[in-house]
Amino acid sequence: MKHLNAINRKAQRVETVTAASAVPAEGSAAGDVVALQQQGGQPPQQPEGPHIPPGCSIVVSPGWEADRTGGTAGLCQPVERDLFDCHMGCYWPAQVPDQLNHAPDWTAKCAAAQKDWRKIDLVFPG
């Protein structure tokens, strides 16, 4: 990096953040910035141990609760924007009621989840 100079604002912000994170805070590990593309491994500042909730998909990336890095920055947001697609496609059958079997009328009270999300029911199958 020492031969590269930031020439636009975004690059300058990257320099600022990386320079700041090079000095670890008291009681914290060094390096507090995690790039999204740094997938396939644990972000460096996380303590050892599992960070993916059991039952959360890391295979169908991103997962419901966590993305592949164990964080939330890569998740589909807001969930209401895609919720009915998950419902229709049985995409997250353990987290979202599926239209095919358990809850064919789940969306009946709610035409657009992003506006009417207060009308979405919690489903207890059976």
Binding site: G27, S28, P47, P53, G70, A94, H102, V123
Partner: peptide
């Protein structure tokens, strides 16, 4: 002397389907 420790907290959306095994 102030000593610090920390934990990673994931704040997630709700679960809309509850296969609750403990009913």
């Amino acid at each position: 002397t102030p000593l610090k420790g920390r934990a990673h907290l994931l704040v997630s959306p709700p679960v809309y389907m509850r296969f609750d095994p403990s009913v």
